[in-house]
Amino acid sequence: MALSLAFSPCPNDTFVFHALVHGRVAGAPSFDVTYADVDVTNTAAERGAFDLVKVSYAALPWLLDQYHLLPCGGALGRGCGPLVLTRGDRADLTGATVAVPGDRTTAYLLFRLWAADRPPARIEVVPFHEIMPGVAAGRYDAGLVIHEARFTYHRHGLTALVDLGEWWEGDTGLPIPLGAILARRGAVDPEAAAAWIRESVRQAWADPAASREYVLAHAQEMEPDVVDRHIGLYVNEFTADLGDAGFAAVEALLGRAADAGLVPQTSSSRATAWTS
């Protein structure tokens, strides 16, 4: 029987999971794959909708009772943080309407921590692909963007007010925890799932050309050079193994957010994860 698997159509996810979903990982089952933005998977995972699922680290406090956190396959790194974009030379968010890609995304949680003493007037949850055009057209005063937008926002005539990754790294010295892979308790052996994903990552690095057609087919008209930069930034050593630095980053993010009353208190992510 096939397992259900959900991740985004972004190049880093399709690159990582190509071998697994195409039956190239020995011993792995078949999968019914859903491609969806992380705001969708965050909500669906709370209902236990998928056996393996990519979610935001910010959503973990609502999910770890149903899921194991896997120590591989996700998105965590340095120099890859969300950006707050504006038009012109706006210097702050006083009175601003800010478009965000989801209310339980890591990007929005980082934004709320950063903006704690300078909150905007209004937040609107907007599909990711509509944020930059909306800011450029004046529908929003600012937009919170992720992924490949850090390579393309200049094309929309926008300016980065703040790089939340730079802010986070400068403040904590830790990498930025963005997206996590979860295995549903009682449905998937987390040790086996981690082994499958690590082998899929290994194959992706060993033969990048093998996944090229699949990655480009799901890249939402992204240019090949942007695809390559996207994969190079978001698929890194933490994709293969979170390690001590990765878990420390997750603990710091959720701990700070809980202390600020932004997410529920949760036990250690390392304690509720399956690790090896």
Rank of each mutant, 00 (worst) to 15 (best):
H154N: 08
S56M: 00
A58W: 01
I123N: 09
V84E: 01
G81Y: 00
Y57T: 00
I146C: 13
G138E: 12
T105F: 04
P119N: 07
T106K: 10
C80W: 01
L93C: 11
Y67F: 12
H129C: 02
A96V: 12
M132I: 02
A96P: 08
A121D: 12
A115C: 13
V98L: 13
A136Y: 07
L110P: 02
G81W: 00
P82Y: 07
L83W: 01
A96F: 08
F128I: 09
L93N: 02
D141A: 13
A142R: 05
V135L: 09
D117Y: 01
R155M: 06
H68E: 10
W114R: 06
L64Y: 01
C72P: 00
L109N: 04
E130H: 13
L113K: 09
I131T: 08
A96H: 12
A136P: 06
T152G: 03
I146Y: 06
E124M: 06
T86S: 04
V145A: 11
Y153Q: 12
L109A: 08
V125L: 03
Y57H: 15
L63G: 00
A59W: 00
R118C: 12
S56V: 00
P133D: 11
A136C: 07
H156Y: 15
W62Y: 14
A142G: 08
A137V: 05
V55S: 02
V98E: 05
T94G: 10
D65F: 06
L110V: 10
D141G: 14
A115T: 11
A107F: 00
G157K: 11
E148N: 15
T159C: 05
R78V: 02
A96D: 11
R122A: 15
A107V: 08
A115Q: 12
L110W: 02
D92T: 10
V145Y: 07
D89Q: 14
A96W: 05
R104H: 15
P127H: 08
A115V: 11
A136Q: 14
G73C: 13
A115G: 09
A75C: 05
